[in-house]
Nucleic acid binder design. Structure first.
Lengths: 211, 211
DNA sequence: GTGAAAAAGGGGAAAATTCCCCTTGTAATA
DNA sequence: TATTACAAGGGGAATTTTCCCCTTTTTCAC
């Protein structure tokens, strides 16, 4: 029987090389390629005679990360089966990967047995959703767009996370200080906070700005 | 010839199992144990007839992380050779691991060949310092205690990163509001910032408070 | 087309923050 | 012993932030 061909895309060489050993020890699978990041992978993909049956895609990578890579794959390789692989269970990231077409999302602390099952399941049915993924999806559904912020509000928040005064922020946004006042009060109410400090903390927590 | 015995401590099963394959493929080495976190490892260590020659210790783990594990090892297993293994090159973490006795600090994106050399070097000489590690050490030396913050100042910063007013912070710290004023101005000057927002950003960046 | 939101702008005032310059006590230390 | 360092505290004032209540304009669904 022909083995199921797997490509690994991960910048952690130690991990990807090691994982190759593990996968090759499963009788159904064979690793047929390793790439350091999404860009290398996409380039390699174009040059392939035959597409891999399954792609293991790391989420956090330099140059081109997993999310961006999925977005590209959705364009030109819509049927390709991709299993996202990551150390972090960040809700946003999971949503992004799944909604961009990933067939599943595994944490790197998955047990090798479970991992093997996931590979088989994805290959046979086209998906493998752990409880974590389902949980996140349900959560997302419930949350809906509870706190959907508009682009202009996000811009304001980003500026509020600097040492600028509101007057300076108004200049920067080409608004009157009073309008900026409005943005602030609006957000304070919407986000249930009382001070600019609270706004900064909110922005950090929700990754509107990064540390 | 007897193989060099290696123990892996890492909560990412997929990684640790895979890494075992890689290591076992090197003729000089053999993996003789896998543990999920520092606590399990320490427990296992006590029960061992013979100590491993080398320990690969992940830094980010649940229950007991790499730093804490090193601290314990320093007490009872001072001679044990430990190579720290991590995805992050956070300066503080590197310093903590090395100063607690780690023989080296490797990133998980190390090339397998380099990895093998590191294993050999640590086993033979007891250390393996990459450029990254040396760089961090030198940096630390230069920085000295440039911005050494006192315990009371840290407490103030933590409270400043909430929606409390300075008056409330003063109450919390059992100080007069004016004294708290002093703390603030002192810090503003020392950290070259102008507003409380700046203080919050500083605290985040330097992990005095977390998101 | 009309009515209801949403965006933009504003007046005025209370509260909080920031700034500058000053005193006192205490502890370390040269 | 004199010096230095620093923690704690303070007066007074300028700015900034926060709050509440209001108008005009634009946008968008019905």
């Amino acid at each position: 029987m022909n083995k199921i061909k797997i490509v690994i895309v991960d910048d952690h060489l130690l991990f990807s090389q090691s994982l190759s050993f593990l996968i090759n020890s499963f009788k159904e699978f064979a690793v047929c390629g390793n790439y350091n990041n999404g860009k290398d992978f996409l380039t390699g993909l174009k040059a392939m005679d035959e597409l891999p049956d399954l792609v293991l895609l790391d989420v956090n990578m330099p140059v081109m990360d997993g999310v961006e890579t999925m977005r590209r794959l959705k364009e030109d390789y819509q049927g390709l089966r991709v299993l996202a692989l990551s150390v972090n269970d960040d809700e946003d990231t999971i949503i992004k990967m799944i909604s961009n077409g990933a067939s599943g999302y595994l944490l790197k602390d998955t047990h090798p047995n479970m991992f093997r099952e996931a590979l088989l399941k994805v290959h046979e049915t086209g998906y493998f959703y752990t409880e974590m993924v389902s949980g996140v999806l349900i959560n997302k559904l419930e949350a809906g767009n509870k706190a959907s912020l508009k682009e202009r509000e996000l811009e304001f928040i980003r500026l509020a996370c600097t040492e600028m005064t509101y007057r300076e922020i108004a200049d920067e946004m080409c608004l009157s200080p009073k309008t900026v006042d409005g943005y602030r009060e609006n957000l304070f109410q919407k986000l249930e906070i009382k001070t600019r400090i609270g706004l900064v903390l909110y922005a950090m927590k929700n990754k509107i700005v990064c540390v």
